[in-house]
Amino acid sequence: MGGKVTCTLGEVKNRADLVIYWGGNPAECHPRHFTKYALMPKGKFVPNGRKDRTMILVDIRETPSAKAADIFLQIKPTKDFEMITVLRAIIKEQPVDPAIVAEIGLSLEQLRDLADRMKKAKFGVMFFGMGLSMTRGKHMNSAALLTLAAELNAFTKFVAMPMRGHGNVTGGDVIMRWMTGYPFGVNLARGYPRFNPGEFSTIDMLIRGDCDAALILGADPGATMPQPAIDHLARVPTITLDPKVTHTSRISRVHITTAVTGISAPGTAYRMDEIPLPLRPALKSPYPTDEEVLRRIRQKIACKPLQLPPTVPMMTDAE
């Protein structure tokens, strides 16, 4: 779990009486999150479902999710870190600077009320979205929120969980953590894993022009990344594996069409609370799966002379 204080969505369903969404719009982005996991279901310790829970939304604008909230706290953009820090101070009964409170866009009473509700909850959960983790402060915001959750455990049970976007992005973290010890941005060039976001993360690598080939799978950076990164992808030989011919495929040397994960390709996917779930494909694809194509590429490379020093044991030999 990477050291964070978290739980499964099943525990949220059965126990959470205070549900806080921070910087996310589940009503539109995760439509069944309220009804299936976090808000509506009747649980063992919240027998009346929605009536037993308090829902608080923290965001910079009033999204459709605000309609589902008991309390909507509209804060000023980029003030998430300040708000979390002030909350941490209030919870520890430390004095807070009114100037900083004014910057957040909320009154001290609202923040005191929130801190009070957090401490009094039987089981509190904070779901945080990209509105927190992708704005000014980035991973420092997430770290602050996770610290807040950890500190609240001096008073009650409190957890935090990221609202993950794409289907199996959680699985990517879990698999890389399992195999290399790090969740993303891993460099294996020296034969052992090194982790350094900012140096080995994709956008930085591409903008600096550090890589001389790329394999893109289950993503379409050609449609989403900044232009200098796309330019570099077009400059180097790029290989794309995707069920459709995407923007990235058009700037690639090689595109291979693959079966669609979960619809025509079987396997496993991780839910946002790191629970692995089996996929039950309903269709048979005329295309090979990503897994099969990757295995065949590996077999081809395995026939070539080994590039790594023979004294370095391969992690994957121990499978």
């Binding site: 289907g167 199996n168 890389m176 394999l215 799978l217 496993t268």
Partner: peptide, 10 residues
């Protein structure tokens, strides 16, 4: 560089 891994199986 190998990038993506979101919409593929474990």
């Amino acid at each position: 560089l190998i990038y993506g891994l979101s919409n593929i199986t474990c």
